[in-house]
Design a protein around this nucleic acid. Structure first.
Lengths: 335, 335
DNA sequence: TTGCGCACTGCCAGCGCTGTCAAATAAGGC
DNA sequence: GCCTTATTTGACAGCGCTGGCAGTGCGCAA
């Protein structure tokens, strides 16, 4: 009674062969309008749901795509997940979320295990998994479709959804320069994230475009999190000729810098401007709210899902718009 | 070549029947040590992975559990996910993450569809899905095992993993009272989240235990997010006899309150103490860092996974410890 | 010597679907 | 009206595994 009905029971009640029910479920043609209606009615009445396992086993598709991630930012993960999941659900697919250690020597075999076990139809890679070239090679070899979100390397190859990190970083830097800042520091993120390099490049390019010499002493490395951002800011603020603005590679590090400023009784933005990148929850939760770049994470993920599912050209690339969000953490340079 | 090997190929190479390979894979007894070794060797060499779909179809278990959530907090979701996922992976299960609208009239049928499609072995419910009684009833009827994380109602029934919200709220309130505060306001969260009520109850109980009369004017409702927390704080701070401390039902609302204080040039904690609840990322990212209750989200989820997978008594309950995190957002009451 | 229990192994049905192909029926052409 | 072609339907194998059961070979008691 409470156990699930099968396709055969549906067919018996509808008075057709079970193959016909299968046709209706899969929206195949060559089913008369009348038969289709009758079957659909029984399906609805019995609340029948085809067994995913059986379809996967019998057919050549599993209606499942995997999402690989290795990113400790809850905000980023959350939006990647919801973006991809929404689109997948709409298109009748299931999304398998798979956290994974992108640095592990077993990365490739772990992913292949996942693929073999679940008969995945495709894979969405989010940074930094996007940069695991050994994995990409293996996927190519198996010709398993995959899309990369914000890839850093091999940008020309395969499918991807990205934003223009260089342009965004330039825009943010231009905003600071426009406010009169000349000594602009950068807290750069993890090397393993390709976008870190792009953001640095954009920062540097914009400085140069304005004839401001690039000063390596003003670039400090951190690890994409609050604590390392705070530490980097402490380092920057002890410089003899200290910067009037700090551009952090993401919002977490910017929040860390902000905390350092508070600690040192430096007023933001009166004495020091601080900008972030991502427009995560944090950007609006700290005080003052952060000037930052809104990264369309949700949309990137949903575009990625779209790309992989709607069988487009195997090397389609989508670029989405970022947006400079000017808030209260940046202001005119002090004189 | 690149396509997955099957159990039959493994058996052929190992020189045994494919049923024996199946026995090895499932760790059944009645396989001689030598045969087992030989099979395992071939499995490793071929990198064989049993098809999940086939096992599900043939067997009576799917080795899959679902995690249902409907919570807009990236931080919370992230930790629930990773906690549950880790434990599931360790125990050889796959975790299916399923966001769902707990208010939808189709909730029950949506979940049943998921169960029927994927042959789920069990379900982990996180708040506020834990309170969907129609769903719980249906799961009971089908006798599908489920665990609830931090259930609010029917606490005595079934399996659950929770913390003591009442005790935690009392502890936090006691901390504020200990600092000399007497006019302590509360920003309470969404009614749909059962823990909101518990936290309010704990706050109230502790006040009364100290002979401080409960003042309904000091309790303002908000919606668990930054913006509504900020608005609630604005309301509280315009009171003629304004509170010296605000206890917010979660960190997001506390961060909102903090922003309101900054806006109004009220010094925290010198003129106003603010406390949160959860110890999310936010708690350490804002300035000053929030005094809050550390909620063991990760551990709760992992305990929930443990409960559902290790076939314990059908009404086991696990309670985990919270911890008061005293940081800089609370201080002695101004006089 | 036979019998019996036990540890191990293999055979086969069948889980609930899809793919293939053949059969049945309807529609069109003369 | 008869044959051809298109449309709709059904029969059946088989996807890769597990469950049940029927062996097979061995040691040990009778």
């Amino acid at each position: 009674m409470s156990s699930r009905p099968t396709i055969k029971e549906v067919s018996k009640i509808a008075g057709v062969s079970f193959k016909t029910v299968s046709r209706v479920l899969n929206n195949e043609k060559h089913v008369s309008e009348e038969t289709r209606r009758r079957v659909e009615e029984v399906v609805a009445r019995l609340n029948f749901r085809p067994s995913h396992a059986a379809r996967t086993l019998a057919g050549r598709k599993s209606f499942q795509v995997g999402l690989l991630y290795d990113n400790p930012s809850p905000y980023y993960i959350y939006h990647v997940q919801t973006g991809a999941q929404q689109r997948c659900t709409e298109l009748g697919y299931r999304l398998l979320l798979q956290p994974i250690d992108s640095q592990s020597p077993d990365l490739v075999s772990n992913v292949l295990a996942l693929i073999d076990e679940t008969h995945l139809d495709g894979l969405i890679l989010s940074p930094p998994v996007t940069e695991a070239t050994a994995l990409l090679d293996e996927l190519d070899r198996r010709s398993l479709p995959y899309v990369r979100i914000a890839p850093g390397t091999r940008k020309e190859a395969g499918m991807s959804a990205s934003m223009d990190d260089v342009a965004a970083a330039r825009e943010l830097t231009a905003h600071l320069i426009g406010l009169g800042h000349r000594r602009i520091a950068m807290i750069r993120g993890l090397e393993s994230h390709a976008s870190s390099a792009d953001r640095l490049a954009g920062y540097r390019a914009e400085l140069e475009a304005h004839g401001i010499p690039f000063d390596p002493a003003l670039v400090v490395a951190a690890e994409n999190d609050f604590a390392s951002g705070a530490a980097a800011a402490r380092e920057l603020l002890t410089l003899k000729d200290r910067p009037t603005a700090i551009f952090a590679g993401n919002d977490d590090m910017a929040a860390g810098a902000l905390a350092t400023a508070h600690e040192s009784d430096i007023e933001v933005p009166a004495q020091l401007s601080i900008a972030g990148f991502d427009d995560s929850d944090l950007a609006r939760a700290v005080w003052p709210p952060l000037t930052t770049i809104r990264q369309p994470v949700h949309e990137l993920a949903s575009a990625a899902a779209e790309l992989i599912l709607s069988g487009t050209a195997p090397q389609s690339r989508v670029t989405l718009e970022h947006k400079l969000m000017v808030r209260a953490s940046t202001g005119p340079a002090p004189r």
